[in-house]
Design a protein around this nucleic acid. Structure first.
Lengths: 375, 375
DNA sequence: CTGAAAGCGCTTACAG
DNA sequence: CTGAAAGCGCTTACAG
């Protein structure tokens, strides 16, 4: 018992067949298409399978049927709440159609992208979903060559390999800053990590600058902080740097709700009033945003919906109903949600800002009384 | 092009062999044990493989070698940060030994447990890691019958099926409350969801009650809130209910940092001082705990280490070095981290509380100046 | 150092 | 309604 437990061989369809007194293929048939088998046979096979705790070898099944029955989902990190919600949406929708998903995570460098991709393609998924595209040329070539249906989500790359579902980061950055301008803010800063580590944040910042430039406002208020591990603390040091270097700043857009939280806490510690002394906005509309004090203005993303729509596209494609044609690209929009942390002009009625061109489905349509939503 | 893209057949070792002018098995050999092949052959095979973008079919390989090369990790939900850190620890450690992991998620009901398990066992993993045990008897039987090496983590069940790595929830609950008692709190409440939805919280509450009883303190201060989706808001309503029903309460232990955050924000809104009017403690030592204002006292868990130690156990077992014997059970302990939200008696030197019997490794040993750590 | 044979555990036509 | 044959794409001994 304490010795090396010699790997006990798994029960096979042959074992079940022997016990039920039939051939292995009748076992397969009973389990897959019970309606094609006599009742007596079915019962014998089923009870034999149950007694032996038979679990069919999926690899063998996939090999002979040439259908793996799964969709691979690749994401750079499991740490990102929004990405996980997309996985939920995918999984929930795909499950109902008999597919299950296999998750491949943590690709940051190009090498890791290729390595992960080989592992994933080696399992012959019926489709691949990329959460945040892969930028390595080798990875892209591998994907194209594989001929596996593919959806790139979140990042709407300039040239999607196959299909794409997401929203525009640039428009998101622009919408947030425009709505701050509408509320009367004039010296709006942007806080983010090093541009190359977060391409999405960099795109948002570009939208932010567009908005400022169009209104002829100061676009030099920018704070870059070191990076990730201590994201929240970065928000604290970020707002300190802002107040020191740009005393005129009246608002700060943070690249995530995490850094916004850090900034908010630091303001409280210092006795700076939010939003009176400085307004603060985040991104991602994390769970805690509405519960903070003051509640945090943020950008709500269609995370879950991205998963659902992606799944629908894939089902159409794999099922070959003619849908999900290559080249399809969906823009699901986003929503700016104004809360206490940017409430400069109390009593001001919500006004529409320039809307995203695409759809505007989002995940959190239920806004409480003191929230203003802009799509 | 816009029509159904007929599934293009994948490149096989045969295709590569043909191109390189060798047999398929020489292709296999070149890729797996290049040192057993002449240099010329190797080069021809390698370039043929590269040119064709050959990615070996892992299912076929696993079938014939009877080694799948992967470890399955099952977790109830991807939402739980601590669980994900365990996955990281596992993945980081296993990777170096040539194994990769396959994640199976979202089991809540017994039915889902069995369903997921069949999917997982059907892939013939070389080991299974359960993050939070499965309580369904069918699931347990399936696991036992499969003969696959197994580690149950986090929840140290009374009778582990094979191996176990985790810590005692009961001792954790006890340690937190004892250290509050030492700090002078006398009317300590406990806030959690319905007991059956979070077994771990219920175990912690038991430890909490033990501590109170041993000190002859009031153990009736208890608040149960509805549940999950709105975890943070539950903290807000929870602290309101506490103040209303138990005006004497001077401290509140929340079952997660999320509800503690909600409670903290609500106190701010109401103008109740923390910790002077009411002390608040959480659980899990989430990223934001140290950054809140006041900073949040919490319990730090060995999440990442659980993954690492589990991986080590498995490698020993699978590799058959004689380690990782069945019955092995590791207790990795935890740490109470006191911060501002429970700082009743400033200047009091940290005092040792009853320590966990087992090891006391944790993930966040670096305490800043104003934190007091108790193991 | 390289290859022909056999087989891993299933499923897919095809007979009966 | 059920089964014998062949094969999915690899790898494992075993010859040469």
């Amino acid at each position: 018992m304490a010795r090396k437990a010699r790997r006990q061989a798994a029960v096979t369809s042959r074992d079940v067949a022997a016990r039920a007194g039939v051939s292995p293929m009748t076992v397969s048939r009973t389990l897959r298409t019970p309606e094609l088998v006599t009742r007596g046979t079915r019962e014998r096979v089923e009870s034999a399978a149950r007694e032996l705790n038979y679990v069919p070898d999926l690899a063998a099944g996939a090999l002979s049927s040439q259908r793996s029955g799964h969709v691979a989902v690749l994401l750079p990190s499991l740490r990102h709440t929004g990405f996980l919600r997309t996985v939920d949406g995918l999984s929930d929708t795909l499950r109902g159609h008999g597919y299950h998903i296999l998750i491949g995570d943590s690709y940051y460098s190009s090498d890791e992208q290729v390595e992960l991709l080989r592992l994933v393609i080696g399992r012959r998924p019926e489709a691949i979903v990329l959460v945040a595209s892969m930028d390595s040329p080798e990875a892209r070539e591998l994907l194209e060559q594989s001929g596996i249906p593919l959806v790139e989500t979140w990042g709407r790359s300039a040239s999607p390999i196959d299909m794409a579902v997401g929203f525009s980061q640039r428009m998101a950055g622009r919408a947030m800053t425009e709505s701050l301008i509408e509320r009367g803010y004039r010296h709006i800063g942007f806080l983010m990590g090093p541009p190359h580590t977060d391409l999405y944040a960099e795109r948002r910042r570009r939208g932010h600058l567009e908005a400022l430039n169009e209104h002829g406002l100061d676009s030099s208020i920018h704070v870059t902080v070191s990076n990730t591990p201590m994201e929240i603390a970065d928000g604290a040091s970020g707002v300190l740097a802002l107040r020191e270097r740009f005393p005129l700043a009246d608002a700060l857009v943070c690249s995530t709700d995490m850094t916004a939280l850090g900034a908010l806490s630091e303001c409280q510690r210092r006795g700076w009033r939010v939003p009176e002394d400085i307004a603060i906005a985040g991104y991602g509309n994390f769970d805690f945003a509405a519960s903070l004090n003051p509640s945090l203005t943020s950008l709500s993303l269609p995370s879950y919906t991205i998963g659902v729509r992606t799944a629908e596209l894939l089902i159409a494609r794999i099922g070959a109903n003619g849908g999900g044609t290559p080249g399809t690209s969906l823009d699901l929009g986003f929503q700016v949600i104004h809360r206490g942390s940017t409430h400069r002009v109390p009593g001001t009625a919500p006004r529409g800002t320039e809307r995203r061109s695409g759809s505007n489905e989002t995940d959190s349509p239920e806004a409480s009384a003191d929230e203003e939503i802009e799509g």
